[in-house]
């Protein structure tokens, strides 16, 4: 059984074919142009970034040698004694790790409170004045674009060495990051409860307390926990610039080539970060579950 495939007459077919070829050629041109631009950007970056492949291949073994050096000598006969020697500073390191977590906690909580206060001012659906919204948003943007460690560097000079500059730096960065996320949550709420409270005579604060907060609180807590997780990592390196926590001991160990200390501290940091990740993830899943049920 043969099926007749209809053929368009040449006069009709040719412009169609030409248009198709043009479209394909345009797409191909765009692709080639993009690839060339990308290659130029990579080449330029390699030149600016002083990429030295010969130096790299020459020294690459050092990367593995570095890690090999950090592996402590552990033999089976004296296993526990070797472990104890590897973690010789365990007491001090655990205290510093505790400090690191507390710096992250205090910084996150203070920043979350500030972000909470600012986020309502940065939400266009709650504040009519455009000037206030604009100012609040730009403030938050400034707070989160300047890296926290830069704030820490400046604060160390103003407030002296110790955890205080670290806490303040984390506070400012957290204010910016959480304020933005909070404002986005607030802008996506259902406007009907707000109108209801307004219709029954509630003022601006009552509208926020009884109509906005119940809708956003679980999201706020979830974002706050996520930020705490990020801030623990941030607080771990605050010590690099003298702003407290475990970072100080770590950078000292790296600078003075105490290889096994480096690995011991890194192991402790990685384990702490993993435990906190696991813990906050569980709490967040429970919160999300609660939200889905209500």
């Amino acid at each position: 059984m043969s099926v007749a495939v209809p053929h368009l007459p040449q006069a009709q077919l040719q412009p169609l074919m030409r248009a198709y070829a043009d479209a394909v050629a345009a797409k191909r041109r765009r692709f080639v142009l993009g690839t060339v631009l990308f290659a130029v950007a990579i080449g330029l970056s390699a030149w600016m970034g002083e990429v030295a492949l010969d130096k790299f291949t020459h020294n690459f073994w050092r990367f593995f040698a570095y890690f090999a050096n950090t592996i402590p000598k552990i033999s089976l006969e004296t296993f526990w004694a070797d472990i104890a020697e590897w973690f010789w500073g365990l007491k001090r390191w655990l205290r510093l790790l505790g400090d690191t977590i507390l710096i992250a906690y205090v910084g996150t909580l203070t920043g979350a409170i500030f972000g909470f206060c600012l986020c309502f001012l940065a939400s266009a659906n709650l504040v009519k004045s455009r000037a206030i919204v604009f100012t609040a948003r730009r403030t938050l943007e400034f707070c989160r674009t300047v890296p926290e460690i830069v704030f820490a560097l400046i604060f160390v000079l103003a407030y002296g060495l110790g955890p205080l500059p670290g806490v303040l730096a984390l506070t400012i960065h957290t204010t910016g990051a959480l304020g933005k996320l909070f404002a986005e949550v607030v802008e996506n709420i259902d406007p009907k409860p707000v109108e209801g409270v307004a219709a029954s005579g509630g003022n601006w604060f009552e509208r926020i307390r009884f109509a906005v907060l119940p809708q956003v609180l679980s999201n706020f807590v979830s974002y706050g926990l996520l930020r705490f997780e990020i801030n623990v990592r941030g607080a771990a390196v605050m010590g690099f610039v003298g702003a407290g926590g475990i970072g100080q001991d770590l950078i000292e160990a790296v600078r003075k080539f105490y290889y096994t200390d480096v690995s011991a501290i890194l192991v402790l940091v990685i384990i702490t970060v993993m435990i906190i990740d696991w813990f906050t993830e569980r709490v967040r899943h429970r919160l999300i579950g609660m939200e889905a049920r209500s």
Binding site: M48, G49, E50, V51, A52, K55, F56, N59, F60, R62, F63, Y66, I149, R233, A236, V237, F240, L250, I251, V254, F257, L266, V269, I270, V273, M274
Partner: peptide, 24 residues
């Protein structure tokens, strides 16, 4: 992922020396 970028930077500085290549 558990190791921060700054820590990686410290390690690479001691492998390939100071400069942007270590940062990359």
């Amino acid at each position: 992922r558990g190791v921060d970028t700054l820590i990686w930077a410290l390690i690479w500085v001691s492998v390939v020396g100071l400069g942007p290549f270590a940062g990359i």
